[in-house]
Computed example of a mutant assay.
Amino acid sequence: MDLTAVRTFVTAVDAEQFQEAAVALSITPQAVSKRIAALETDLGVRLFHRTARGARLTIDGQAFLPHARTLLRAEERAAASVRPGSRALRVDVIGRRLSVAGLLRGFHRAHPDVELDVVTLLDSDAAVAAILSGTIDATFRAVTMPGRRLPDGIESTPVLDEPLRLFTGPAHEFAPAPTVALGRLAGRRIWMPGNRPGTEWAAYYDALATEFGFTIDPIGPDFGIEHLLDTIADSATLATFVSEQTPLVWPAGHDLRLIPLRDPTPVYPHSLLWRADNQHPALIALRAHLVATRPTRPDGEIWTPAWARRSGPPR
């Protein structure tokens, strides 16, 4: 259907005269008549009764009018979806409770006028594929996994090196400690039921466990954070890792402990990934905001997997 003719029809209805519609559209009254006549031919019905005093809608014109308005609104939404500065910025945050979601919330507070569409994708392969296809504009990920490199056309910049903490219940052997040396975890079990094989975070924790001699135990269903809090609180042997900026709230009776890890401090390296040719203004603003507000690395010796270690300043 010719949307120019549909727009002319709606303008003529709103203006109530073809002459006024012509003025609004900056065309001649004859052009208005021709467009509407072509639309009537296309639809096979008369939309207006023409009289010496003007034109009024037929019953078919009245029936078509709300659909014509819907067509024009759809056209505007379609154009806005790709118009620079008007399309919502689509960003993958892995999990809405994690620190990277906090980074995005910080950007939103600094730029409340930017429309955001926040999504959660399972793993880095899915996220990178979504960037390449244009489904999303950016993702927060740890890059790169062992034996892999980012595809051509994908850019990245580090945005947060987040320290891990040991998370235990009050009866755990490390519960009284103000800090725990990472090497003291050797031979022990760290329970992580959400550690899905094939994800970049599973690769990170596998590398950490291999280097420091402990075991990552993914056994057991992942019933969510509340179940994990209850289980850790009741156990004298189970412990898990929680990143420093992950917001957690638990009942006072749980008496859970978040213990800093030292010598070295394991940090999870978050980066922002995007397609190099994506010039969305909000993406440019997001990158600038994250670089300007990037926290400094924690003091002392730190650890990241060899495949995630960076050299030089962030791009």
Rank of each mutant, 00 (worst) to 15 (best):
R141E: 15
G106N: 13
D222H: 13
R46C: 04
Q245G: 13
L228N: 11
L208W: 06
M1Y: 08
L256P: 04
T8K: 06
A292W: 04
L121E: 07
T240P: 05
E244N: 09
M192L: 13
A209P: 04
F241V: 02
R87Y: 08
V291G: 05
A22G: 03
Q19P: 00
P295M: 06
E200P: 02
S243R: 12
E173L: 11
L104Q: 04
G61R: 05
A74L: 15
V128F: 06
S311G: 13
T265V: 07
G220N: 07
E76V: 01
L182Y: 00
E173M: 11
L182G: 01
L103A: 02
Q62F: 08
R97E: 13
P163F: 02
P66H: 02
H172V: 00
Y205D: 11
D137E: 12
L65T: 02
R315E: 12
H280Y: 00
G147K: 05
L185K: 00
R294F: 06
A24P: 01
P146A: 01
A130M: 07
T199Y: 06
P146S: 01
D161C: 04
P197W: 01
D161G: 10
P197Y: 01
V10R: 07
A171N: 14
A288T: 12
P193T: 07
R262Y: 01
P313A: 15
R50S: 11
E211Q: 13
L39Y: 01
T4D: 15
A276V: 09
L122T: 14
E115H: 13
P218S: 13
A88L: 05
